[in-house]
Amino acid sequence: MDEAADTKSGLLWKLQNIDRRILYLVLLVVVAIPVLRPMNITNAVDPMSEALWKTIDATPADKIVLVSSTWSKATRGENGGQTRALMEHLMNRRIRFALSSFTAPGAQVILDIVRDMAPRYNYQYGRDWVHLGFQASPNNFVKGINADFRKTVRQDFVEKKPLDAFPMMARVKSIDDVHMVVEISASAVHNIWMQFIKPGVRVGFCPTSVMAPESLPYYSSRQLAGVLWGAKGAYDYEQLNVRNGTGRYGMGREYMAPLSAAFALVIVSITIGNVAMFLGRKQTRRGGSGS
């Protein structure tokens, strides 16, 4: 057997070239364990999540929070947890809110979540919350509500009635009556709010993890009042809710353990690959086969 063939059969070579199907299988097992046996993961709350929680918590009684839901089932793992944690907080503090969406599925997914949670907190449609529905033209919607909600949204999403039909909207005329806008999204929709909303209105952003870094410059310049970073952001928010008695653990904690397990596997596999590469090189320099 020549030296090259001998090297390729060695343990160090094998550790540098693990078959991807084996990696997939290991990942499946590693993620399945915390899914089947839920566990707590120690977490440090990010200041960006805390900033969002504090801004929402400071909502005055005469103002509402506008929650925009621009996500679908594809990102439920991250945006679903964020939405639930946010709604727990709003409903526990009895903060009135309006929902809207820049995508058709987004309007439905948040409606399903709120309908599921509302009975637990005795949240009544029209009195405590309304749904403005899918808004096909984001720019015009934001510019419109800056001046007048009624001229921008002719009817609500659930009962198809004019906004004047709901007691909650009696004192809500324009964006001046909104304490904060929170965008829950899988894409960079926060730009629309920051570009077109009336200056002074706070904007919070709940993106997926891959989108979160893009929003960092705006949080740093205080154009965003807070950011929830994917599934970790959801867990952060749940922790803040539990700590302050405004909610309980849910999807955020449930999803954080499998996520952490997957991260751990990524780190371990990178380490194995590099250690094997270094030892292999060392042996090659000494004139060995790397096995």
């Binding site: 997939y24 990942l27 997957a262 596999s269 590469m277």
Partner: peptide, 20 residues
């Protein structure tokens, strides 16, 4: 569906992240 990327990320990270 989004989570399927995890498999490719793991495989790509293992192969590409070599200290050279």
């Amino acid at each position: 569906m989004f989570s399927l990327i995890a498999f490719f990320i793991l495989s790509a990270a293992y192969r590409a992240f070599r200290i050279r």
